[in-house]
Each structure stands twice: as structure tokens, then as C-alpha cells.
Design a protein around this nucleic acid. Structure first.
Lengths: 211, 211
DNA sequence: TAGATTGTTAATCGATTAACAATC
DNA sequence: TAGATTGTTAATCGATTAACAATC
């Protein structure tokens, strides 16, 4: 369904358009069908309107000339494009502070991400629960991924263990990894890796502060 | 000290070079002065070596032709450039799961970020502590920032309160905001805003998964 | 000196934006 | 029809990379 060679900045912006439309629809009167133009989205997001039309054009023609886009329709198209119309199963590896916080994060469930389990190597944590999600032994992670057909692994272990844990997840057949560990994982190119590097965010910030 | 018009992707990569060098120095024998070439950094980071030299050239000439860069020297230069040679004071606003997890995150202290306080509006939380950091009433945040000269505010409140809390921080004279709330803050351009949007990370991931 | 690598210029590549014909 | 806005092409802008003189 998806064409190749879509710039990743475009995918990024599609997520922004999606959120923007969600907000508009939420606050709007539902009686009238709501149309929205690329320049209105531009005003709300700060993204150039030609950019918006071009980003959408990668995937089809969703607007009506002279009128704009039917908001509820465009939202649905974006959800199809971004895979937000499906459920995704995920696990969290690492039951530290951040891992536990992510397990409780409501934003995930809202987006169709179902956290099926948390994994850790600490015997004191194994068997406990975070909310309604159980903490399992990291030794079981490969089998768990395979048996339960887990799509996404959220990696929240210290940097020194990240690579070996990632290898286990790949062995189990994980499809994507959201990596919070501050290092570059080297894995087979089959697996999609997204890095969320909080330290780098901070370092960039201080660069701009020390100008 | 800093020139304007440095692309933000360059700043991003400087952080990566810095971490890369830290790792190399950590694992290397300290007897010999360690020289490293742009192509070695390239091999470790996956970034083109000309790119690396060009990024560094924005800030000065740090290498020796025919030899490369003296690792400990380059690390120090990068720390100067990125403002990592200074201490920065920060607060966390929002003592939810993520806020508490960030308060405990060791990576911050290691980088010279000192968390001076956590703020929340929940009377049950105010007065408690996360580790050694106290939770204060959100009403005091403006005065606290002003009195203690806080540089960075980490914003971890629900989206619907994010704008008003950000306004308070700006009123107190905050210099930068690290925003975890899923929305675009509108603030005076004096304040540096960095957005860390976990939902968007997930949405991008599912785009690539549903190909 | 010969070999290696920087710093920098010039060429390439890709992404953004302006402009406009098509059309609602 | 007149006004508005899309979809798309062409122009612009900026970032990446190749190439190479300078030089250790």
C-alpha cells in the first residue's frame, strides 16, 4: 500500500497533520461537514501550505479543488497511511523508572498500542505488575515475542545491555524497536529502529542556551 | 562564541560525535595520546567523513592534517561548543509517571543538568520527594524560576495544561523548555523550545510497519 | 620525502516553496 | 460565472558529498 522513497520528514509531518485535524474535529460542531484547506492547516501547524499539499500528494488526491479537504475523511486517510487504524502489540524491556512510566503512559493505548508485557532481569521485579501488565523474566522474551506475535519492542535498558537485548528481540522476530538507550544498535535491516535519545535532546538544548 | 545559522542537524551530529569520542576514549589505553580521523568517526557513527569535517569546520580547526584529531582535545572542544562544560539548573513540571521517571534519570546529572525541583498542582503530591528532589506547588513555579535562576523547564503535564504552565515559566524567565506534551507551544521567540513527542515517535513507527 | 588526512571549494542531490493550470 | 483551492510542475534553497590543494 505504501510507496517507497517517501522522505521521513514527510511521514513526520503527516503525524502532525493528523493530530491537527483531530484537534479541529474535536472542537467543531458536528452538524455541518467540516472542510479544511491546506492554508488553514498551515496556519495551525506553521508548515507551508504547498508542503502540506505535496506531502499528501504522495499518497493520493484527498481534496476538492476550490473547497479543501473534508476533515473527517482526511483524518481517516491519514490513519490508514500511518497504520493508526490497526492494533499493534508491544512489549517494554527494562522495568526501570522510564520503563515503568512508559508502561503506564495512556497515550500508547489511545493510539492502538497494546503493551502485552514488561521484561526485566531483576528477580525482585519479575512476577510483579505495573498496573495490569505483568513483569516477566527477560530470558523468556524471545519465546514471548514469537508466541504472541509482538510487533514492537520498547527498549529501556542501560546502554551496556541494549545490544544483547535487542539481538534477543530480533531473534524472536520483532518488527520494530523503539530504542531509548543512548547508543546506535546494529541489527539486520529488516528491523525498523527508532531512537529516542533524551541525553541528545538535552545536549542540543544547552548548545542553544550557551550561545 | 557561537555563530548563527548553524543547521540544527549539525548540532545534532555534534552530540553524536561527542558521545562517540567519549566511548572511544573510555575503552582506550590512556598511555598514548589518541588520535582519531574523520573516517574512523565515520565508521563508528555511519556519518560521511566529509560531513564530519564540515560540521567541525563551522566552529574552528581542531585537527592536524595527515594525522587526525587528538581525541581528548576534540571532546573538550565539543563540550565547549555544546555547553556541556557548564552546569545547568532545571525543574520538572508535572509529577506524573513520566515526570517522576525523568526526576530519577541519572543521565541528566551526568550531563551537568541539576534538577532543582518538581512542581505539581496535586496537594497529595506537594511536599513529598522524588529521591532527594522536593515537589512544590505549581503556584510557586514563577517565583522559584526567578529566585533560583532556573535555565531549563521540563514540561511533563497533560496537553490541556501545557500552554498555561509554559506561560508561567516564561513569566518567571525560563530560558528553554523541553516539552513532552503533545502540542505546539506558542511562546515568545526568546525561549528555546524542544519537543519530545512520544506519540509521534510511535505513529512514525507504525507507518513503517504497515508498509 | 611519501603517505595520510585535514579544511574547503565545487558539484550533486534532495527538499522546500512559488506559481499556476485544472476544476470545484 | 467568479472566487477559491487543489494537484503538480518548475524554481529555489540548503544540505550532503566528492574532490583536492594544503600540510602534517
Amino acid at each position: 500500500m505504501k510507496k517507497r522513497n517517501i522522505p521521513s520528514v514527510t511521514v513526520n509531518r503527516l503525524c502532525i497533520y493528523h493530530r491537527c485535524l483531530e484537534n479541529i474535529i474535536k472542537t467543531e460542531d458536528k452538524k455541518e461537514p467540516l472542510f479544511i484547506s491546506s492554508s488553514e492547516i498551515s496556519a495551525l501547524t506553521g508548515i507551508n501550505s504547498a508542503q502540506i499539499r505535496k506531502d499528501l500528494a504522495y499518497f493520493g488526491q484527498f481534496g476538492k479543488r476550490g473547497i479543501g479537504y473534508l476533515a473527517i475523511n482526511l483524518v481517516k486517510e491519514l490513519e490508514k497511511i500511518l497504520g493508526l487504524d490497526k492494533k499493534w502489540s508491544a512489549i517494554i524491556v527494562g522495568a526501570g523508572n522510564l520503563g515503568k512510566a512508559l508502561a503506564r503512559y495512556r497515550g500508547f493505548r489511545n493510539r492502538g498500542f497494546l503493551i502485552k508485557g514488561i521484561f526485566d532481569k531483576d528477580p525482585l521485579k519479575i512476577g510483579k505488575k505495573i498496573g495490569h501488565i505483568s513483569i516477566y523474566d527477560i530470558k523468556e522474551v524471545e519465546k514471548f515475542i514469537r508466541d504472541k506475535n509482538i510487533d514492537i519492542g520498547v527498549l529501556v535498558v542501560p546502554a551496556e545491555f541494549a545490544q544483547e537485548v535487542a539481538d534477543k528481540m530480533v531473534a524472536g522476530g520483532i518488527k520494530a524497536i523503539l530504542n531509548f538507550a543512548p547508543l546506535r544498535l546494529s541489527l539486520s535491516s529488516e528491523v525498523r529502529i527508532h531512537n529516542v535519545d533524551l541525553s541528545l535532546e538535552f545536549e542540543e538544548l544547552t548548545y542553544y542556551l550557551s550561545k
